[in-house]
Simulated assay, not measured.
Amino acid sequence: MNDLILVMAEADLKIDWTKMPTYNTIMAVAAGAGLLLVVGLGRRLLNPRERLEPAGWALAFGTLGALLAATGLHMTLTWPLAGQGFPFDNIIFGEPALAFGAMLLAAALFLWKRGDTLAAAPDRVALVARLAGPLSIFVFGMGLACFGIAAAGWTYQLFAAPPEEPISGEFAEYPWLEASFISGLYVLVGIGAVLFPFALRRPENWTTKVIGIVWAIAGIVFLLFGALNYFTHIGLIINTS
């Protein structure tokens, strides 16, 4: 999330922020919250004793989906988004956010229109499996894409923060550290996405538990790290303007 600067010189770093729009702060928070909500909804669906309120989930998915789809679409179609470089940000952050946001919006629409049918279904898991089956192909593909993003992060040591960025900048001399941290998060998301089609076929097996664990961990970390970046990115802007 912090790959905002490419050059670290001995002189004070200066950035023209009019050419460097960045909003992966809210994208990270929304993505983290979205992953946690998906896990939460999945747990309720798997437990027939859990009461399901479709309208509440539709509102939550719709809010987060709108944020991720809007920011992801803008970042994906503006090439590169940052006038001072970093075209890879469009791929790393924009495209996954757009994909996740679109899927959340689709889920929100279904829950809003037909959520009562799902809540009253005698076998809610089977119904969701039939509905999500076709889309699971895209989820699987985006899981593989997450692995590709993680590999690029490790190979090219992306995501390193400059010394001028508070907190994260303390590790500027160790670019592999933050590269491993962010790439590891993408690996966790990718594992869950790749297993998703198989979990739909057999929801009772181990794949469902693994998906819940990896997406819950990634969701918590993305949410907290995105919230932290509100401080670190503001500090970076002040220190480099």
Rank of each mutant, 00 (worst) to 15 (best):
E95L: 15
A97R: 02
A97L: 00
A99L: 13
F100V: 15
F100W: 09
G101D: 08
A102R: 00
M103L: 15
L104W: 02
L105A: 06
A107D: 06
L109Q: 10
F110A: 11
W112D: 09
K113S: 13
R114M: 09
G115F: 06
D116I: 12
T117D: 15
L118E: 09
L118F: 01
A121H: 09
P122A: 13
D123R: 03
R124Y: 05
A126C: 12
L127R: 00
L127G: 09
R130I: 04
G133E: 13
G133I: 01
P134S: 12
L135M: 13
L135W: 03
S136T: 06
I137H: 05
I137D: 09
F138C: 12
F138D: 03
V139W: 08
V139H: 07
F140Q: 03
G141E: 12
G141H: 09
A145V: 15
G148R: 00
I149Q: 07
A150N: 02
A150M: 05
A151M: 13
A152S: 07
G153H: 01
W154P: 00
W154M: 13
Q157N: 10
F159C: 02
A160V: 02
A160R: 01
A160C: 11
A161N: 09
P162F: 07
P162Q: 08
P163N: 10
E164Q: 12
E165I: 02
E165P: 00
S168C: 06
S168N: 08
S168L: 14
E170F: 11
A172C: 04
W176Q: 07
W176L: 12
E178W: 13
E178I: 13
A179E: 08
S180E: 08
F181K: 08
F181G: 12
F181H: 11
I182P: 04
S183Y: 03
G184P: 00
L185A: 08
L185C: 07
V187I: 10
L188P: 04
L188H: 06
V189R: 04
V189E: 13
V189T: 11
G190R: 01
I191N: 03
G192V: 05
A193S: 14
A193E: 07
L195T: 06
F196G: 14
P197Q: 07
P197M: 11
F198K: 03
A199V: 05
A199F: 06
L200Q: 06
